[in-house]
Amino acid sequence: MKIAVCIKRVPVMEVKFAIAKDGASVDETGLKYDVNDFDLWAVEAALQLNEKNAPGEVTVISLGPDAASEQIRKALSMGADKGVLLKADKVPGDAFAVAEALAAELKAGAYDVILFGKKSIDFDNSATGAMVGELLGLPVVTGVSKLEIAGGKGTAHRAVEGGVEVLEFPLPAIVTVDEGLNKERLPSLKGIMAAKKKPLETKPAQLGGAGVTVSKMELPPERAAGRIVGEGAAAVPELVRLLQSEAKVL
């Protein structure tokens, strides 16, 4: 079985973000990057499917700058077989431009299953996987929390409000992965060394035209300092009044 996983290089979120001088992008100074975590679960799903349906091959594809090869190597060190970097110095905020480039690459690969994370934690569009499916004319299942592939078809569970939806689909298909499907494996130290020797091809991304552009970014307003209205039982009436009239939460 041939499996492709599309992964994205995203900033590690444990920093205070600043807006760049252009007012419409994030200042990348000092940011550290990792694989989008939903995509890590997609990689793990691909590796597990590959282990169950051997022989097979897992290809990892990422669209991004040269530095995104580090994220591809991470997936290779987890056990994926080969990587493709679709090089774009700046990743467009419009998911459709990215989807067109990915679809162009995926079309030639004759993959049985193409996996994505449900969303990226930076732009948070939840759009790319579904758009690629549309461009390739393939069935798409999004936000999967359980996945089985057997006999040329797939079964997937999706969490829906208060329950579970069970879906069946023929292959080839596109599946986007939700939290809870698995926990990704740690790259073993041997895996990290082996990843150096695995093929990683770089080619220019054929980005589609962007229909949407980011015009402006703003930080959320600073939160005002808290206020102490009094002490003990005597303060309760004032507190209730403020919760009703000012905070409007009661």
């Binding site: 995203v10 590690v12 550290k32 694989v35 580090e70 130290l189 990290i192």
Partner: peptide
């Protein structure tokens, strides 16, 4: 947070990371 344990360490104010190769950081992070 994707994985809170992978947060950039405050101890790296001096950017020692820059003196390490990608494979060295990968081993350290695992």
């Amino acid at each position: 947070l994707p994985s809170p344990e992978l947060r950039p360490r405050e101890a790296d104010l001096f950017n020692i990371d820059a003196a390490l190769t990608e494979e060295e950081r990968a081993v350290r992070d695992s």
